[in-house]
Design a protein around this nucleic acid. Sequence first.
DNA 1: CTCATTTGACCAGC
DNA 2: GCTGGTCAAATGAG
Length: 299
Amino acid sequence: MAKLGCSSRRKAIEELLRGRDCAKQLRSVINGSCEDGSSTTPSFAEQLVKEVLMSFTNSLSFLKNNPTSESHDVSNVQVCESPKSEDSQESNCKSSIIKERRGCYKRRRTEQTWEKESEAPIDDGHQWRKYGQKEILSAKFPRNYYRCTHKFDQGCQATKQVQRVQEEPILYKTTYYGLHTCKNLANPEIILDPMSPSSSSKFLSFDNSFPTPSKQECPFLSSSNLPSSVKGECKEEVPPSTSSNHYLISSDLTFDSSPRHHVTLSSTLDSEYKSVDISDVLYDSAQLDDAFEPFLEFR
DNA sequence: CTCATTTGACCAGC
DNA sequence: GCTGGTCAAATGAG
């Protein structure tokens, strides 16, 4: 089985490398400094975007097809494994089992994290459900815990913590844990099934406005592989009036360049820590730093 | 009725 | 033992 895992991983890497190359080209196009000067048309950029998206999609497909392999590398992204998958079977002997099961979770300490700081809570286009709030000793304000709404229906493991760190001026620090593996239904036109090699779907979600700390947000690329069975949860569309920076890479290449308040976005991948100003770099390759280090920089 | 939030309890890690 | 992260029952909102 290890052989299959290696093979898939190699394919995934190849796909990511291909995407990186496309991203580089795309950056050149966007910067208006296309070297060969022959392909600065919007359609070319669009094509590049599609290539990049396809790269992500295929890569994820390869990786997802072998969830058991390479557990050291991706153990923290348990895409399809819901810790509560057995809950539905536990209707009887509830109270006693509940007590045994409560708190039986794995903490995700070494997981990749991203941090954002902003003057206002961030709306990143994903739907979040608050599952806890805690007074933190070293902090003046309680910390709020959010998980992806699709944790159970799609096994999305993404979580985030939002904490107000400053009173004057108001400053929120949002820390993201894990990748979104759920399907963002807000923009179905580009949501395609990553399991299908001919389709592509990726959201790179970086945004910096969010109406209330309890609302939806998420800065990650979101991939998905499940049918749109979620009914009432596709309201996560970020209202244009309150949020710009449509982290969503659509084939329309709609990158909002409107000035916003500054948000510090940083990512940590074990030993690596980055900090960028999102007003300058709308896209960060945090997730795929190794393979995608120059991924995109849109203004 | 369904889904989100609140909140106290439970548990892992330090 | 303390702190912080998560669970899940209770409650509220739409």
